[in-house]
Design a protein around this nucleic acid. Structure first.
Lengths: 147, 147
DNA sequence: CGCGTTGCTTGACATCATGAAATATCGATG
DNA sequence: CATCGATATTTCATGATGTCAAGCAACGCG
């Protein structure tokens, strides 16, 4: 078995676990306020940015396309989303938010206060440090020199 | 969405979202390696620390007790967990890992390499900074006058 | 044109989650 | 002690999410 983890690292892991738990909790709660499930909220959020084929939704959600069919069905049943033909490929169906769906997505995003709430206590300087550390943790290479 | 959030904060939020996504991905993957679902892995992990009543499992998972019944049923069906009577209260059933369940839990914990991997690039000093920032970010319920 | 590939849906099935109702036990009160 | 409200668990019905296999339509290449 792997060598034991030092206490500091363990502590950070626990904190990340807590962040993950809190994030999910708030996300589900915000979704529920709009009578949406987490999965529906995620898809609606994706489509609010731009319409996209079912296939791509599945890739973003890391699930099977057949699963997306059902989720979009339910969103469509509520008039939040519609399927359009792709002009360049008749196999493809583009899912897109309706006007009502876009409104819901905007309100949803507004109530995702995980954004403002937990960062309130951090200064601008500290947010930059946090950003850099998270980036390195995720091994993201900044494409452009960061401000 | 309204530009109420400055770009830096937005960037940090996105990063946290990425952390959450990656965490879940790795967790589900590790669970699947032991033929467990995420929920089953979480319960097994809880019980590996100490046996506890169904009620408490539900509280930890933030779900209804009736849901826990099913999850423990499946773990019990595989011989990973067993139900014991609580000597002090005959209403209560204590769920506890079997020997085999404890082994699985230990191996599972070992394969949760989200622990070691993503922090590898950070120095001891940086981990301390990250820990402090996360702690302040998570500052539990602003009962105290938020500084 | 023919044929393998791709995109989406359908169907069968397991899991997770909720809520309401049933059962058993506890604890307190009269 | 008998009763009654509260608590712990289970069962049942229902819905959402997820997988996989099979099917159909359309694409595109040879």
């Amino acid at each position: 078995m792997a060598p034991r983890i030092d206490p500091l690292t363990f502590e950070v892991i626990e904190l990340i676990g807590t962040v993950v738990a809190r994030y999910h909790e708030e996300y589900e709660h915000a979704a529920a306020q709009h009578a949406l499930t987490g999965a529906q909220a995620r898809v609606l959020g994706l489509l609010a940015r731009e319409p996209m084929p079912m296939r791509r939704i599945a890739q973003q959600l890391k699930c099977e396309p057949s699963n997306v069919t059902g989720i979009v069905d339910r969103l469509e049943g509520r008039g939040l989303v519609e399927r359009r033909p792709d002009p360049t490929d008749r196999r493809v169906k583009l899912a897109a938010t309706t006007e009502s769906g876009m409104e819901t997505a905007v309100r949803l995003r507004g109530s995702l206060d995980f954004a403002r709430e937990p960062l309130a206590g951090l200064s601008h300087q500290e947010r930059m440090v946090l950003r850099d550390l998270l980036q390195r943790m995720l091994e993201i290479t900044p494409e452009e020199p960061a401000e």
